[in-house]
């Protein structure tokens, strides 16, 4: 049977960082030809209730690069399986599947990029927009003996959020981590950043 000679794409795996999930595999090489690939997936529901159902991936029904952004396909915190086949003209390879199922709760969470600015006495913080799953747990304190750490949840990135009204001349420090509630995990804290409020005289 002609299709059998086209090998199934090997080395299927998922690389996931900050809830962006990329499926990769090693390319199938046929000299002088462009091999395409098709990707399908199954969630835990499909495996448990309808084991026959595989669903075409959102963006990778016929692609020529050996990788596929499957972020939009993974919409629950359950174990997913993926399968890929190579296609050359009318020939198709067998499906290859993941050696280990993938659950998004294994995604790598990096600490957030943060910018702190001041508007007069107001300490403002801004985070990069990391998508709908991300909130930011902010810890801040006035740099002075026995000062108390305060906490605030910033619900989304991409906008300037008021953190605290500073005392004249005082220095404030801020650190933050991402919180991804859907997988019940947080990133490490980022680098502490400090900023000093202007002195009272400045405003007169």
């Amino acid at each position: 049977d002609e299709a059998v000679i086209l090998p199934a794409p090997p080395d299927l795996s998922v690389h996931s960082t900050n809830m962006k999930h990329i499926l990769t595999w090693s390319p199938v090489i046929v000299p002088g030809e462009t091999v395409n690939y098709s990707v399908e997936y199954q969630g835990e529901y499909e495996r448990y209730y309808t084991s026959s159902h595989w669903i075409p991936s959102s963006w990778c029904s016929s692609i020529s690069t050996p990788e596929c952004n499957v972020t939009d396909d993974i919409t629950a915190t359950v174990a997913y399986n993926f399968r890929v086949k190579a296609i050359l003209g009318t020939q198709s390879s067998a499906w290859s599947t993941l050696k280990e199922l993938f659950n998004r709760n294994s995604t790598v969470l990096t600490s957030p990029r943060m910018k702190i600015i001041k508007d007069g006495y107001h300490l403002i913080v801004e985070f990069e927009d990391m998508g709908p799953y991300f909130e930011f747990n902010v810890t801040y304190w006035k740099k002075s003996p026995n000062s108390q750490e305060l906490y605030k949840i910033v619900r989304e990135g991409g906008s300037l959020e008021h953190l605290v009204t500073m005392e004249a001349g005082a220095e404030y420090c801020v650190k933050a981590q991402t919180v991804v509630e859907i997988i019940e995990r947080s990133s490490a804290f980022n680098q502490v950043e400090c900023i000093r409020a202007q002195d009272e005289s400045h405003l007169l």
Binding site: G43, E44, Y45, E46, Y48, Y49, I55, S58, D72, D73, T75, A76, T77, V78
Partner: peptide, 14 residues
């Protein structure tokens, strides 16, 4: 509507 359908199913399962 397969995508939202599957999202519902898998999250119901969770």
């Amino acid at each position: 509507i397969l995508r939202p359908f599957i999202t519902l199913a898998n999250n119901f399962f969770v």
